[in-house]
């Protein structure tokens, strides 16, 4: 399978919910096939930032955005940008596992079917489930309801479902916050194996997780990107005092 190199380039991004400014002048560039973690206290804007990248914020009434977000060299907020096309390139995994009330098979083939692909689905399901480390557990019950899986399995199914859309970028919005430690570790392992093919952005409130899985880390505070850089550096000797306070736990 061939994956295109994706580059995310954000410049001067401001985001408002009505009068409230949720993101303030965010700028950063991301390399392809790396894992980038975004950390910060609740309400700091990290999830909002993630959702600007596949324009999920469009669903909320009264939001306003300015600045530039380039993905694959295209301005995703340009008027001629096709949101549906964008979301096929930029997959997303949500905080709580949200499989559709359909069979495992139908969940995974959802995106290809929506694109009009109806051939080679069996093959695709097998490939994606193997990739998502769910094949052994699910191969005998592909026709069973996705809701019959455990929480951790459901989340891996949601990852598989996102991968089946053939994205280059995977956004993960606190994907482990509803899972037990064992399931969390499996997802983290999975991320490591996926990183060869995908550019992964993960929002997490768990700093150990960020340190364990990511190549780069960004720290958000009150809508500002305080510090962004190599994870090793951020977690050992951050430049900014506020970053240090947060990662050492001296923070509310």
């Amino acid at each position: 399978m061939e994956t295109t190199a994706c580059i995310i380039d954000v410049a001067g991004l401001n985001f408002y919910y009505g009068k409230f400014q949720a993101l303030k002048d965010i700028s950063l560039q991301l390399e392809p096939r790396k894992i980038t973690a975004f950390i910060g206290p609740s309400g700091c804007g990290k999830s909002t930032f993630l959702r600007t990248l596949n324009r999920m914020n469009d669903l909320i009434a009264g939001v306003r955005i300015d600045g530039k977000v380039m993905i694959d060299g295209r301005d995703i907020y340009a008027p001629d940008m096709d949101v549906v096309e964008l979301r096929r390139r930029v997959g997303m995994v949500f905080q709580r596992p949200n499989p559709f009330p359909m069979s495992i098979f139908d969940n995974i083939t959802y995106a290809p079917r929506m694109k009009g692909q109806h051939k080679g689905l069996d093959d695709l399901v097998e490939r994606t489930l193997i990739k998502a480390a769910l094949w052994d557990e699910a191969k005998d019950k592909l026709k069973a309801s996705a809701l019959s899986l455990s929480g951790g399995q459901q989340q891996r199914l949601c990852i598989a479902r996102a991968l089946a859309a053939d994205p280059g970028i995977l956004l993960m919005d606190e994907p482990c916050s509803a899972l037990d430690p064992v399931s969390t570790l499996r997802i983290e392992d999975l991320m490591q194996s996926l990183k060869n093919e995908y550019t992964i952005l993960i929002v997490t409130h768990n700093m150990q997780q960020a340190a364990r899985v990511s190549d780069y880390t960004g720290f958000f505070l009150s809508g500002e990107l305080i510090e962004f850089g190599d994870s090793n550096k951020i977690f050992t000797k951050p430049d900014d005092k506020r970053t240090e306070d947060y990662i050492t736990g001296r923070f509310g």
Binding site: M56, L59, P99, M114
Partner: peptide, 15 residues
């Protein structure tokens, strides 16, 4: 119907 279903579907590139 849970809002999550709608979000999941749109995020997968469904119209």
């Amino acid at each position: 119907v849970p809002r999550e279903y709608r979000e999941a579907s749109l995020a997968l590139g469904a119209t």
